[in-house]
């Protein structure tokens, strides 16, 4: 069982933005879904899922890529040819 406090904490970790009025609804749905996931407790542990894939390695080759102008076109805010993000410090 997760509590409303747990949901608040998870929302904080995921930077998802949650308001008090939503907590009860999300918590209730979370618990019903997690109850359903409990069926996995009966699965015998193995090495996990084996992909048939393999690492794809190649030499580093210079190819045409996006122009800086195109890469910045969808940005909300830019400065001196860079993306501008909120302050971290």
């Amino acid at each position: 069982m997760v509590s409303e406090r747990d949901i608040e904490h998870i929302a904080e970790l995921a930077d998802i933005g949650i308001i008090k009025e939503e907590l009860a609804e999300f918590t209730g749905q979370f618990n019903r879904i997690l109850d359903y996931f409990d069926i996995l407790d009966t699965v015998e542990e193995s090495d996990g899922y084996k992909q048939d894939g393999y690492n794809v390695l190649r030499e580093d080759v210079a190819c045409p890529s996006l122009l800086q102008e195109d890469a910045l076109k969808n940005a909300g805010d830019t400065e001196d040819g860079f993306f501008k993000a909120p302050r971290v410090m």
């Binding site: 904080e12 930077d15 998802i16 933005g17 969808n74 940005a75 909300g76 805010d77 993306f83 501008k84 993000a85 909120p86 302050r87 971290v88």
Partner: peptide, 20 residues
Amino acid sequence: DGVRYGPAVDTKKPWHEAFQ
């Protein structure tokens, strides 16, 4: 997160607050 695409994030706010 509204930095590279989509409706812009408020870059004047601290990052957790802005992203949330």
